[in-house]
C-alpha cells in the first residue's frame, strides 16, 4: 500500500503501522543521501487533519502523516 510521510510517497506492506512508515521514510532518506533529521525518539506524528497519531497506529491506503523533521 502507498502512504505519504511529509508528502513523500512510500510503499509499505499491508498492515503497516506509523512506526513502519517512519522506518521506511528514514531508510529512503538515507539511501538518497539527504540530510538525516537526527534523533528518531520523541518524534510527534500528525495526520492530515492535524490530529496526533501514535507510532503503533495502523495505516491505511493513501493515508498522509506528517512530522517536524526538526524534532
Amino acid at each position: 500500500m502507498k502512504v505519504f510521510v511529509n508528502d513523500t510517497g512510500i510503499d509499505l506492506f499491508e498492515g503497516a503501522t506509523v512506526r513502519d512508515a517512519l522506518n521506511k521514510y528514514f531508510a529512503s532518506v538515507l539511501k538518497r543521501g539527504e540530510k538525516d533529521s537526527g534523533s528518531r525518539t520523541g518524534i510527534i506524528v500528525y495526520d492530515q487533519h492535524g490530529n496526533r497519531v501514535m507510532t503503533d497506529g495502523s495505516l491505511s491506503e493513501d493515508e498522509r502523516i506528517y512530522f517536524d523533521p526538526g524534532t
Binding site: 506492506f13 499491508e14 503497516a16 513502519d20 521506511k24 531508510a27 529512503s28
Partner: peptide
Amino acid sequence: PSYMASAFDFEREDQGTGMG
C-alpha cells in the same frame, strides 16, 4: 519481521502483507 519489511529499503514489486 516487519522491521526488515520497512527499514530495509530494497526495490520490489510486492511490499508484502502482515501475517496478523
